[in-house]
């Protein structure tokens, strides 16, 4: 039964990847990255039971934490860029 879940996760990763490739906006791509991130967490948890090595759940935990930082970094990037645009516009209008 773990197999069924794994396959569902893999297919969903493929779908999310497709979304990342299609875009169209950058937010869609960030969404896709985030989705693949959480799917990886699930995949690793399921796989560590599939392999009979539950001690590898640490990995999934690490992914869950790191993934969040990645998303926040992207947000910060958006904010910085928006500010740069604003200041560029200011200097141009002056």
């Amino acid at each position: 039964m773990y197999y069924a879940v794994t396959i569902a996760l893999l297919v969903t990763m493929a779908l999310a990847l497709l979304r990342a490739l299609l875009g169209p906006s950058v937010y869609d791509r960030v969404l896709a990255v985030n989705m693949i991130g959480t799917k990886t967490v699930l995949l690793l948890s399921v796989l560590s039971f599939l392999f009979g090595r539950p001690d590898f759940l640490d990995l999934a935990l690490a992914y869950a934490l790191i993934n969040f930082i990645g998303v926040l970094a992207v947000l910060e990037f958006f904010r910085v860029r928006a500010e740069q645009d604003k200041s560029d516009a200011n200097t141009e209008s002056r």
Binding site: F51, G52, R53, D55, F56
Partner: peptide, 10 residues
């Protein structure tokens, strides 16, 4: 095989 970490589960 499995990952080279000895454990009771392994």
């Amino acid at each position: 095989g499995t990952a080279p970490i000895f454990a009771s589960a392994a």
